[in-house]
Amino acid sequence: MKAFRILAAGLAGLSFAAMAHAEGGAAHPHEPEGGWPFEGAFGQFDLPSVQRGYQVYREVCSSCHSMKLLSYRNLGEQGGPFFDPEYPNPNNNPYVKALAADVEILSPTPNEFGDYDFRPATPADQFKSPFANENAARAANNGAAPPDLSVIVKARHGGASYIYSLLTGYPHEDAISTREVTPAVVTTPASDNGTPDDPTDDIAEVTTPAVIQTVIDVSKVHIAGHDAAEGEHGEAGLLIQPAGQYYNPFMAGDTTPQYEGDPRHAPPGGFLSMGPQLLPDRVTYADGTEATPEQMAHDVAQFLAWASEPKQTNRKSLGLPVMIYLGILTILLWFSYKRVWRKIEH
């Protein structure tokens, strides 16, 4: 039986390890320095950071990304960033009321004439969505609808670390340059329809004027948390950014078609429609924290982690007494069980 147990445990561990694979093609997300305060069995959110994260969301992200599952009242609920023990009901919390009233929303209920008015939001209202619907979001964003951020940390492998890595992972501007190419010289998949004998294709190539391409020198791209692999990607090669797209090593995807170089060593990651957003001092923090890109990414990732599971604090704080209780019950049952069986040969 012992062999069976060891074998089973080993193989079970193996199959669980196999399940925890990273999303194909992308660099593995890394934590900020010092890790996340909410990790581990006793980890809790760093509320000042979550508060700053709300500011980053409000001032930067919310212009494109909705958070439909959140209401302003959530900010003032127990465990939320603006919870005030004096106001157990967040609807009465004046600070939350002010945060809500700061945003003008289209009332979800019609007025007495049947029209929908704009009014300041109340704590009971949902977070304002930047676009009326998904089609509007897509039309305004170059065909790619920005995802809703309500549960984004649960919805991505790597969670908050993924958000942090993505936001801070864009290549440094030193690595980015532009070049002018005439399509006749470089045939990118985008300008070649794949049939060399197609006359329309050839004509298009000849008559298309020179285009400005944004190219990334892969040898200058530093992927945080991937120092060991530096040499692997250190080979010279150019990555051509498609128009309106941005390269990010943490985005799931495949860079091979856009890579000029050894296709076996195409850099990790992919392209996304969102460019780098968190430029230094994009927001001004009220508490005097310096708004570096890393700081803002850290804060907003923590805010989004809170938003994805606002009850995480309750979960962990209930977990400990439950575990202690089960431990005590186990010990009591053991003695009870041994006592009952003490006279039985088994």
Binding site: R315, L318, V322, M323, L326, T330, L333
Partner: peptide, 19 residues
């Protein structure tokens, strides 16, 4: 009693995942 003991050990694993 023996089953209860097994059940509580199992619940510890269960609770670990839940919490």
């Amino acid at each position: 009693l023996k089953d209860s003991f097994g059940i509580v050990l199992f619940l510890i694993v269960f609770a670990y995942f839940v919490f």
